[in-house]
């Protein structure tokens, strides 16, 4: 979605009412973020928004003048998605899947994430079982549905490499073993990542 470099545009302060609704939205989309919400969105600091002109219109939310938090694509049914810098700060708050090593370079050049990268030995899909949503080994214990936001980790790496919305449920992916899984993701080194938010 942000394959091309973006140019920074003026930032606008948000009304506190919008800030409040955004906070609500955030918590309902990412319930696991609840313990950290006061750190992500301190009550006192003001939230800024920046309009992005990419292939699609999007709005980036920034806090403390330069820390990017979330972006919202101007399209129906697309959830609020976290900026990768936020994911790196709170990796435990987002549902994850993992791709194998061979797929990393494709994802980092903006390709659509395909199922084989997840179903192979190095990949990781949710593994339904009892217990907390995030298992000890990093597996997610709940099947993710189509349309849910997901963070893409990589085999042998600690940090997340992309974030996007599932276009196929994880159950479906396991069954079919082919086809696109995450389209139009925000990945390391893309325009949004490089965007200067100062």
């Amino acid at each position: 979605m942000f394959k091309k470099d973006l140019t920074p545009s003026p930032k606008q302060k948000l009304k506190s009412s919008i800030q409040r609704s955004l906070r609500q939205n955030l918590l309902s989309t990412y319930p696991l973020l609840t313990p950290y919400i006061d750190e992500v969105l301190p009550k006192k600091s003001s939230l800024l928004s920046m309009k992005l002109q990419g292939v699609e219109r999007a709005t980036l939310y920034i806090i403390d003048d330069s820390t990017p938090l979330f972006y919202e694509v101007d399209k129906a049914d697309v959830p609020l998605l976290p900026h990768l810098k936020l994911v790196h700060r709170f990796p435990q708050a987002f549902p994850t899947i993992r791709i194998d090593r061979g797929a990393i370079r494709f994802v980092l050049s903006g390709a659509t994430l395909m199922a084989p990268g997840l179903t192979s030995a190095g990949g990781r899909l949710p593994d339904p079982k009892e217990g907390p949503e995030r298992a000890e080994d990093g597996h997610w214990t709940r099947e993710l549905k189509k349309g849910e936001p997901v963070v893409v980790m990589a085999e042998g790496k600690e940090e997340a490499c992309a974030v996007g919305m599932l276009v196929a449920g994880t159950e479906e992916v396991k069954k079919n073993g082919k086809g696109p899984v995450v389209e139009d993701a925000h990945y390391l080194g893309d325009g949004l990542w490089k965007l200067n938010t100062e």
Binding site: R89, P91, W193
Partner: peptide, 14 residues
């Protein structure tokens, strides 16, 4: 606390 991630000073990625 949030984690602090080191980013490469050349290519900005982890």
């Amino acid at each position: 606390q949030s984690r602090h991630v080191v980013y490469c000073g050349v290519c900005t990625m982890p």
